[in-house]
Design a protein around this nucleic acid. Structure first.
Lengths: 224, 224
DNA sequence: GGGTGTCTCAAACGTATGTTTCAAACAGAC
DNA sequence: GTCTGTTTGAAACATACGTTTGAGACACCC
C-alpha cells in the first residue's frame, strides 16, 4: 500500500461523518472505525482533530478555488471591459462547483453541507483557516458581485449577500434535503445540478429586488 | 426566592450560551456557573441537558406560536374569502416574531440564532421535539404559502421554500451577523427589525422569480 | 542481512463531560 | 418547635473524549 492510503481513508470517512453529524458531534473513534484504521493514525498523519478538519476542507477547496479563478478569468475576458452581469457571475460560480471532479456521486452535496456547517458552527479555528487560505477567490467574487449590482447601497448589498449565502449553504447543508437527494425521495429530479438551476434564479431575483421598504404596519406599532 | 428563580436563571444563561456557541459546545458547567447555580440544579429541575434545551425553546416558542395563530387569524379574516398574498403572509410571520415581548433587547436575535441552530445542528431529539410540539402553526404557514403562490409547481415551491428558510435561518444563525447586530459594527442600522425589513423583500422577490430555466451552458457541458 | 525511517497497533493518559448521590439547608403547616 | 416536602450543595460517578506512548511490523537502501 505504498505510502499510505490510510490518509485518504481517514479523509473519506471524516468528510462523510462531519457532513452527517457536525464536527463536535463526530469523534475520532467514529472516524477511525468507519475508516477501518487505528485510532492513533489521525494524530500521526494530521496532528490533531482540528488539523484533520482543515485537511478535509483543503482537499476540496484548493482545486475548487483554482477552477473558480479560471472561470472568473474566462468570464472577465469574454466581457472584455464592462463588468459581468449578476447572472453570469452566479453561473460561473455554480458551474465551477458543479463541474468539479468528484470522488463519488454525492461529492458536492456533502461538501456543500460542510461549507454550511463551517459557516454555522462557531468553530473559530475553521473560520480562521478558511479566511487565511481562501480569501483571494472570495474577495474576487465579492468584487464581481459589487460591480454587478451598482444600484444597491453597500448596506443593502451586504445583507443580500448574507441572504444568498444563507439560501445556498443552508439548502445544500440541510440534512433533510441532503437525505432527499441521496435517497431520491422527491421523485422527479434531485441532482445538485437541478437544485442549482432552481437556486440561481431565486438568488438573482432576490438580489435585484426593488429597494428595501419599511415594514408596512410596524411603524405605527409598539416596538417593545 | 419563593419556589425557585433558579429555573429562570438557568434558562437565561442557557439561552445565551447556546446561541453563542451551539448546543454540544456548551457544557452544563458553563451554564450553571454563568447562572451562579449549583451544577446539580439542571438535572434536578429539568432532568437532563436535552430536556433543558427543549425548555429553552418552549419558553419562547409556545407564546410565539399563539401569537402567530392570532396573526394568521386576523389576516385571513381581513382577506375574507380570497387567500392572503405572499407579502402579507411573510409580514404576518415577521411581525409576530418581532413584536413578541422580550426578556431583553437582544431577545429576538438570540432566539433567531437558536432557531437557525436547531435547523442546522443535527440534534435529532430537538428536531423531533419541535416537530411534535409546533407542527400546527408550521403546517398552517405552509398552506398559506401554497395558496399565495398558485403559479408555482409543487416542486418549484418546495425548493423555493427551502431557499427562504435557508436565507432566514442562516442569516439569523450566523454568529458574525449576530455580533454585528449586538455590537453595531456596521454603523448605520442593525436591529433585527431592520434586517427583517431587508429580508422580506428579498424572499418575496426570489419566491416570485420567473420560471426556473435550464442552466445556460451546462447543457452542452460534460456533466462528469 | 543489518540498519533506518515510516507506519500501525493496543494500551494507557489526562481531562471534560452528563449524571447521581446523599447530607445539609430551607420553607411552610400543624 | 417539630415535622415534611422541596431545594441546594459539594463530591463523586461512570463514560467519552483527544492525545500520547512505546513496542512491533514493514519496506527500502547500502
Amino acid at each position: 500500500m505504498a505510502q499510505s492510503d490510510t490518509v485518504d481513508r481517514i479523509l473519506d470517512a471524516a468528510e462523510e461523518l462531519f457532513a452527517d453529524r457536525g464536527f463536535s458531534e463526530t469523534s475520532l473513534r467514529m472516524i477511525t472505525s468507519k475508516a477501518k484504521v487505528n485510532l492513533a493514525a489521525v494524530n500521526y498523519h494530521f496532528g490533531s482533530k482540528n488539523a484533520l478538519i482543515h485537511a478535509v476542507f483543503a482537499r476540496f477547496l484548493t482545486p475548487f478555488s483554482a477552477t473558480l479563478e479560471n472561470a472568473f478569468n474566462d468570464l472577465e475576458e469574454r466581457c472584455d471591459g464592462h463588468p459581468p452581469t449578476l447572472n453570469q457571475t452566479l453561473w460561473a460560480l455554480t458551474e465551477s462547483a458543479v463541474r468539479m471532479p468528484q470522488r463519488n456521486e454525492n461529492g458536492i452535496s456533502i461538501f456543500m453541507r460542510l461549507l454550511g456547517l463551517a459557516y454555522t458552527q462557531s468553530q473559530g479555528h475553521l473560520r480562521k483557516f478558511l479566511e487565511q487560505e481562501y480569501s483571494q477567490p472570495f474577495s474576487r467574487f465579492m468584487r464581481l458581485l459589487k460591480e454587478a449590482t451598482p444600484q444597491l447601497s453597500a448596506v443593502d448589498r451586504y445583507w443580500r449577500i448574507q441572504f444568498m449565502l444563507g439560501a445556498t449553504a443552508f439548502t445544500m447543508s440541510s440534512s433533510d434535503a441532503l437525505r432527499d437527494i441521496l435517497q431520491n425521495k422527491l421523485g422527479v429530479e434531485t441532482t445538485v445540478q437541478e437544485i442549482a438551476a432552481r437556486l440561481v434564479p431565486f438568488l438573482a431575483a432576490g438580489m435585484q429586488a426593488q429597494d428595501t421598504v419599511l415594514m408596512p404596519s410596524l411603524s405605527e406599532a409598539p416596538v417593545a
